[in-house]
């Protein structure tokens, strides 16, 4: 009895931390590989501890590929998508949640149904639409469709609809217009929802692949995921370069996650749960 109660917590710790370790081992392996001499990268036996540390793969990658351009492009697109989403869905959510007009519920039901349309599989018609708008190979070609994701609208509408009307009624009696109500009452109390929305959309845009591949074909506008793909297309497999590129692409997310883990997870869980 005494033995099992003493042993149990240890077993638990081993199991839980073991699981966590197994899950991140691939990422640790990527990091280790990126600073290893090439012969150890291409070795038949794993070298967990490199015999010497080298940054040559990073320099080689930066020499051959415009990595920082990809990074900047990804960042700009994700930022654009986040800002446009927030502006556009704020007004739409306010309209659907706080204003009374005929047909708003019918329109919302339409948005709901459309949520099950995965917009990427429309990439062929979308390609021609975006091309006719002259937006092909621009950041807007990715940021604008992302801003139309119904998920964002749900998140904000759901938050807005649960804000008590007392303050708003008082403001209306004082003669406040909708813009001032929105700015002074609704937005300040909805900051957690905005945080969640921003995190959700930024990550979504940062990692977007399918549509970017179609819309961003000129090399100067490539994003990180699309740029990294060019490493795969190379005729010979250079895992050292690939791991260096992958690790560099992962670094921003890793740093932000280590700093803001709680906020990122809270944001994701808020955006993911719709009740």
């Amino acid at each position: 009895m005494r033995r099992s109660s003493a042993l149990k917590p240890i077993v638990k710790y081993v199991l839980y931390y073991g699981l966590a370790l197994i899950w991140v081992v691939p990422i640790i392996w990527m990091a280790v590989t990126s600073v290893k001499p090439t012969p150890e990268v291409m070795s038949f036996t794993p070298h967990w501890i490199p015999s010497s540390l080298t940054l040559e793969h990073f320099w080689a990658l930066l020499e051959r590929r415009p990595f920082f351009l990809w990074l900047a492009n990804s960042f700009q697109i994700a930022l654009l998508a986040t800002v446009i989403t927030i502006v556009v869905t704020t007004f739409a959510a306010y309209s659907l949640a706080r204003l009374k007009w005929r047909g708003r519920n019918a329109i919302f039901a339409m948005f709901l149904t459309a949520m099950f349309i995965p917009w990427e599989i429309n990439s062929i018609p979308l390609f021609f639409i975006v091309k006719d708008m002259g937006l092909l190979n621009t950041f807007m070609s990715v940021a604008l469709p992302l801003s139309a994701l119904p998920v964002s609208l749900f998140l904000l509408r759901q938050f807005f609809i649960n804000i008590p009307t007392d303050l708003e009624d008082a403001a209306k009696i004082d003669g406040c217009g909708h813009l001032r109500i929105l700015w002074h009452i609704i937005i300040p109390v909805s900051l957690p929802a905005y945080g969640a929305l921003a995190i959700f959309i930024f990550i979504f845009a940062w990692n977007e692949f399918f549509w970017s591949l179609v819309a961003l074909q000129r090399s100067g506008v490539r994003t990180l995921p699309i740029g990294l793909k060019t490493l795969v297309a190379a005729s010979d497999i250079q895992y050292d370069l690939m791991m260096a590129g992958s690790f560099m692409a992962t670094l921003p997310a890793l740093i932000i996650f280590l700093l803001l883990r709680r906020h990122v997870i809270a944001g994701i869980s808020m955006a993911g749960v719709r009740r």
């Binding site: 917590p9 638990k12 710790y13 839980y16 931390y17 699981l19 966590a20 370790l21 899950w23 991140v24 691939p26 990422i27 392996w29 990527m30 590989t33 990550i203 940062w206 990692n207 692949f209 990180l224 995921p225 699309i226 990294l228 793909k229 490493l231 795969v232 895992y239 690939m242 791991m243 590129g245 992958s246 692409a249 992962t250 997310a253 890793l254 996650f257 883990r261 709680r262 990122v264 997870i265 994701i268």
Partner: peptide
């Protein structure tokens, strides 16, 4: 879980989601 650092474990299990698909594919090919 009645262990310390549940947030850390959750973070480890969640983190791969933050990788983009090219990194995931390249890494697993390796």
């Amino acid at each position: 879980a009645k262990v310390r650092g549940v947030g850390f474990i959750e973070g480890a299990l969640f983190f791969p989601y933050l990788l983009n698909v090219s990194v995931v594919g390249i890494l697993w090919n390796f």
